[in-house]
Every structure is written in structure tokens, then in C-alpha cells.
Simulated scan of single mutants.
Amino acid sequence: MARRRPPRSVTADDLLTTLGRLTAQARESAELQRARVELAEALQRDTLPTALPALPGLRTAARYAPARNGLDIGGDWYDGFVMPDGSLGFSIGDVQGHDVEAAAFMGQIRIGLRAVATASTDPGEVLSRANDLLVSVGRELFATCTFVRFDPITWVLESARAGHVPAIWATADGRCGAAQDPGGLPLGIQPGEGYPVIRRRLTQEGAFVLVTDGVVEGPTVPIDAGLDRVTRLVRSGARSGACADELAAQVMTAAAYTDHTDDAAVLVLRHDVAAPERAA
């Protein structure tokens, strides 16, 4: 019967060699993760607009914040641009996932919405065509989105949403609420999806605020509670006369109460009372 060789004792050199190998692996993994984060941050920064359009009587502002842990750069976005007929188009949305792929997909959606809006100014049609475009690409990601059109002649705000969280509105006289409008499926899931359009005439001074779910929902915060908090903030800002930039900053503070595990975006449309000639 063969004798079993006694186990070799581990020396200090062995331990140092193993520790060095593990340290090198950890450093390589950390450097790779840091490179991915930096790439995602660059994509996020370069695909968000540097400025938003505004008109006399309508001021706009936005805020974006990455996930609190600083690693989960995601696909939240906001955008605003002048449409071919002179109206203003605004979008906000959230791509599934929190990585470089989500950030890149976000940029594609934002550009796609702008491209589609050159052929149609109807928010429901814009979302429907963008949805079909994304489905045809065959990506496994999807995105929620709200698209808004502001008509500077009629002072009407048209909106459609694709699985996105409700907008919040408030007027200077204290009225407020969450716009629980009907909508369709998120973009990129099912071809041929329709998106109802809701029209609102802005007859009172106030604010219309769009957010992503990172502002209103978290591990211990249900979305209804988050929407209530943002509604109170928007109502207070509208009554006090806060400017669009101040109101965007105030609304973003709500993200801290959701435990901020997701990235977050806020888009504020601060409007005056429609001038008589516009109302006519």
C-alpha cells in the first residue's frame, strides 16, 4: 500500500504569492469596471442636450443624477427641440438596465425620436413610429417614455406616454395632481402599439413636470408615495413662483427619499397664463 505524502506546509512566500495574484486580479477587475463606468458616463453626458428650448411665457429646465452608488449609470434621458412646425417637442424616458449598453441604447432612442418628429408632430404618432423602429432593430432592451408637444399658438400641451410614470402638474392657485393618462406599452416590445394623446390648454400659470422612476420609486418607497411627494413639491413651487431651474432642483431632492438606487431625471415646463391673442 502506497504511503500518502504528507501535505507540504504553506510558507510565507506561498501566502505572499497567492496574495499578490489575488490583488492583481482584483486590480484588473476594478480597472475594467472603472473603464466601463467612465464609458457609460461619457455616453450619458454626450447624449443629453446641453440646452433646452424655451419661448416667451414658457421656461424649461432639467436635472439628471446617476445612481447613488456611482456605478449604475443607466439609460434615463430628457430632451427638448424645435419641431418643423415651430412647436416644441420634449421627451423623457428610462431604458431597461444600468450599463454601457443601456446608455448607448438611450442615445439611439433620443435620436430616433427626433428623426421621427420631423415627419409627424403628433405625440402618439411619434411614439408609435419610434416603437416600430426599435422593434425592427431587434434589441432585447425596451424603454419607457413620455413625449410632449407644446403649441405656442394655441397654448395647448399634447402628451402621450409609453409605460412611463405619470407627469405632475400644478397651477399657481394651488390646484395639482398626477396626470394618470392612458398610455401604451414601453417602446421596443410589440409592433403596431398605439399611444393615446391627451390635450391640455394652459389657461393658468403653473408647471408641468416630467420625471423618471428613480425620482419617485425605490426599494422601500412605493410609486404612489413618491408621486405624492413630488406633487407637493411642484404645488409649492408653482404657488411660490419658483423659476423652472429652482423647481427642477427642488423636485430632484425627492430622489434622496427613494434610496436613489436608480439614476433619475427631471424635466420642468414652467408656463405663464396664455396671452389673450393666444387663447383666441
Rank of each mutant, 00 (worst) to 15 (best):
Ser159Trp: 14
Ile73Ser: 04
Gln25Glu: 09
Glu158Cys: 15
Gly183Gln: 02
Val82Ala: 14
Arg139Ser: 14
Asp245Asn: 09
Gly237Ser: 06
Leu202Pro: 00
Thr212Arg: 03
Leu16Thr: 13
Asp122Arg: 01
Ala274Gln: 02
Trp169Ser: 02
Ala143Lys: 10
Pro84Thr: 04
Glu217Asp: 12
Phe147Pro: 05
Thr118Tyr: 14
His164Cys: 10
Arg175Ser: 04
Cys243Met: 06
Thr253Arg: 07
Ile168Asp: 04
Arg129Cys: 04
Arg5Ser: 11
Ala162Met: 10
Ala24Asn: 09
Ala225Ile: 11
Val221Thr: 15
Arg27Gln: 15
Leu55Arg: 09
Pro219Glu: 00
Asp151Phe: 13
Thr171Met: 06
Ala265Gln: 01
Arg34Tyr: 07
Glu277Met: 10
Gly75Glu: 02
Arg149Trp: 13
Pro276Gly: 03
Ala254Arg: 00
Leu269Lys: 00
Cys145Tyr: 00
Ile109Trp: 11
Asp245Ile: 06
Asp272Tyr: 02
Ser91His: 10
Gly226Trp: 08
Ile109Ala: 08
Ala12His: 14
Gly183Cys: 05
Pro166Val: 11
Val251Met: 03
Ala274Ser: 02
Ala143Met: 08
Ile168Asn: 04
Trp155Cys: 05
Gln96Ala: 15
Leu48Ile: 02
Glu158Ile: 14
Gly124His: 12
Ile111Phe: 13
Thr203Asn: 03
Val165Met: 12
Ala265Lys: 04
Thr121Ile: 10
Ala54Arg: 15
Leu134Ser: 01
Arg27Tyr: 14
Leu32Glu: 12
Arg139Gln: 12
Glu38Tyr: 13
Leu19Asp: 04
Ser159Cys: 13
Arg278Tyr: 07
Ala248Asp: 01
Asp181Arg: 14
Leu88Met: 05
Asp99Gln: 03
Arg149Ser: 10
Ala40Gly: 00
Ala103Tyr: 13
Asp85Phe: 12
Ala67Ile: 05
Ser9Phe: 15
